[in-house]
Write a protein that binds this DNA or RNA. Structure first.
Lengths: 154, 154
DNA sequence: TGGCAAGTGGGGAAATGTGGGGGAAGGTGG
DNA sequence: CCACCTTCCCCCACATTTCCCCACTTGCCA
């Protein structure tokens, strides 16, 4: 809900299982809608993650990211590759009156979304996963391994 | 939509699959037209990118680039090579009333465009890709590698 | 068990992309 | 200078997608 000390406060937590209907629509979990302030004209930006899922930002948070990217050296080839990916896949849209978004076919296909999907809250953003892929990417074993390497950070 | 703090605000995002018709015309995605302000007398400048795709700027943004190039040391051989490429391939044109542009045959051939093409939004410009080439240039594996190297930038 | 809240499904209007015919404009060769 | 040809652009018509609205089901709580 707006800024606080220069940082966005919308915080997403938890996991929710929802379904994609035949038109490619998915209902955003009510908790997440609340976290964004429950406003009427609520817009989201959705893009892909290299891990194989979708990432969703409230539009203001995404615009902030874009602003930062614009200030970087535009000739850098690695940056161009990165932006072709992040920005090139981005899709913005609003919610319908039932709180659903339409996931465009390319994104749906990229993330392997059909029938059932998991919403995963991730602080200032959230992700949408195919169930199987989610299991592969975030099993306890994998996390145990990763935790070791993180110990220096916090 | 116009200037803001000396910087153009037209921001393109997302990817759209369109087709090139038998006359060499391609429809610009409606989202991109909106981003440029939906004006009537809307002009674009199209050129090539070393990666093998086309790059398209709204004319004002392109003019701005040309202005910067003129201020650089004209004796520099590397700059000359670069400009022969960017400026030498450039083609300006307007949209027809259906929002389509005509891609000149040399550019079409350079980028390998036929039948289906992808539009990729890239902040202040957008690109037009042959589908296969796009996959090669921005697959998830490549992006993961690149992200590592970029971590110093942001 | 009634009522509300949340998620699901589907119909219909509007917006968007696609394809093709015909006329104007511009370049080329006689 | 004129006739021809090509290229480009404007128009209309069609198919598909997207978005907006209303109604149903399910689960939770009083």
């Amino acid at each position: 809900m707006g800024k606080c000390g220069g940082r966005w406060m919308t915080l997403f937590r938890g996991r929710f299982l929802h379904s994609v209907d035949s038109k490619g629509r998915v209902a955003i979990p009510q908790r997440f809608r609340e976290a964004m302030g429950g406003e009427e004209d609520l817009r989201l930006v959705m893009t892909v993650d290299p891990e194989g899922c979708l990432v969703v930002y409230p539009e203001p948070a995404w615009v902030e990211l874009e602003r930062k990217w614009q200030e970087l050296p535009q000739m850098n080839e690695d940056l161009k590759t990165y932006l072709r990916f992040m920005v090139g896949w981005a899709s913005d849209g609003g919610l319908d009156r039932q709180g659903r978004i339409l996931v465009p076919p390319p994104l749906r296909e990229y993330a392997g979304l059909e029938h059932e999907v998991w919403f995963i809250g991730l602080l200032h953003k959230f992700e949408i996963w195919n169930g199987e892929r989610l299991g592969m990417a975030t099993g306890p074993e994998k996390v145990r391994a990763v935790t070791q390497k993180l110990s220096g950070l916090f």
